[in-house]
Design a protein around this nucleic acid. Structure first.
Lengths: 248, 248
DNA sequence: TCAGGCGATATTGCACTCAAAAATCACGGT
DNA sequence: ACCGTGATTTTTGAGTGCAATATCGCCTGA
């Protein structure tokens, strides 16, 4: 077992000295210890370093992060409220195992959020923002042609994020971000589904999305985005059903 | 420690003002102390017992609930992640003041969630569930005719909850519940807007909603529900703009 | 008189500690 | 040999204490 715990980076010099009464996106976790732990632990779980359903002794996590149990427990409570871990009374925390149903639900929810984002974005998006998205779209098309999966995925994510940003809705952005992290791993694999033509389909869908966005056709864009995510969902679930190399 | 702390009522079977919104699973807060505090504090804030932006000393809350700071702080962290309070580093917790923009955003988000619920519900709702909703609809119409605001609001909430339930999406239900609590106070006032005909409008919209639901017209229902909530939003914001009795 | 620095006080953040519950293990009975 | 019961150990839940930081009032000087 590791004795020292230099996992905590000590100080952020740019840690927002006086964030007046500004909306600090909910929890003010950027500076305090429990906030850093929260972020670390969330990443740790999202990245899949802890197997599903396995019990996580607090002591072990404490040593791992080099802190005492108090801030860790606070972070765990938050993660539980976010749905990343299950907290059983007197029986500790386990990373929540995502059933196929859960994944299905989460994708549907993301589809709904993106549909909403599209609808709202149409109401207030600027020409510049559209131009931004168009440029990302072409970039993504380039990655598609070169079969650069990573670049494609990255550009794709950026486009969807831009649409959410364009909706100018803080509550939506926050919720979208929190759930995007949760399923990003799975979402990535959607494009790797055995049926390779899914990639081409996605590109075509993006063309339609862009078109609807240009025309500010809110309801229409909403529908398209929903179906786009639904197709991603189908591909992801299909991929998860396939036998894949087990990790570690 | 304090000898008597009767502020915590151990078990109130009938103290749940929102019976159908109770599916806040994820955190196992029903049994442990911090869970009870979390629920109590959330209700306390949602009910508006603490003025916006006012600093809440932990000590005071501890005495109020008769507990020590540790579980209280855990509850505060969760509430912060839910967006009900702001947690400023070393400067304590304040109940988050909802700006008009925030309210606007939250209503839009709820509109998106309900739109999603409608769309999903159309895919899998049973005849029985539709019959349920129809019966609630008629009940609500009765309240409308008798100008029974409270009954109307209650039936209205139940209908929307039933639609969300019919979507059979746990993640959606959870998120809907958590945000419904946050804006329920404001949502209630939407029907009290000076323009009294809003009530009649809402009834007519509900007719259309029911019709689309019967036909399982997902995309259509999605649109209608979105606009329905948008109208509620407009009424609520309008009402909030009117002079109202200042709280305490 | 007002601005700015300084100290006292209060409050927060985190670690530590203790009690209670669960999990594990051992032992004895059938 | 297997299962049930009880003791031990481990782990969680919660209270308390201490250091660090912010808040507030006071004092000094221009």
């Amino acid at each position: 077992m590791t004795d020292a715990a230099p996992l905590i980076s000590e100080k952020d010099p740019a840690s927002d000295p006086r964030p007046d009464l500004k909306r600090t996106s909910g929890i003010a976790g950027e500076a305090s210890l429990h906030g850093k732990i929260l972020a670390k632990l969330r990443d740790y779980i999202v990245e899949g370093n802890l197997s599903d359903g396995v019990r996580i002794p607090e002591r072990q996590l404490c040593e791992m992060f080099g802190i005492s149990r108090t801030p860790l427990r606070e972070a765990l409570k938050v993660l539980a409220s976010e749905g990343l871990v299950d907290l059983l009374p007197n029986r500790g925390a386990r990373v929540r195992a995502l059933s196929e149903q859960d994944i299905h639900d989460l994708f549907d929810l993301m589809a709904g959020l993106e549909a909403l984002a599209g609808r709202l974005a149409c109401e207030c998006i600027t020409e510049d923002e559209i131009a931004d998205i168009e440029s990302l779209h072409h970039e993504m098309y380039g990655f598609y042609l070169h079969r650069d999966m990573h670049g494609y995925f990255d550009a794709n994510q950026k486009i969807h994020c831009k649409i959410v940003d364009a909706a100018r809705n803080g509550a939506l952005s926050m919720m979208y971000a929190s759930h995007a992290g949760r399923i990003s791993r799975i979402r990535y694999s959607a494009n790797m589904a055995r049926k390779r033509d899914r990639w081409g389909e996605a590109m075509r869908e993006h063309e339609v999305i862009l078109d609807a966005l240009r025309r500010r056709a809110g309801a229409e864009l909403s529908d398209i985005l929903f179906l786009h995510l639904r197709n991603k969902q189908a591909a992801a679930i299909e991929f998860l059903g396939e036998p894949q190399p087990v990790q570690s």
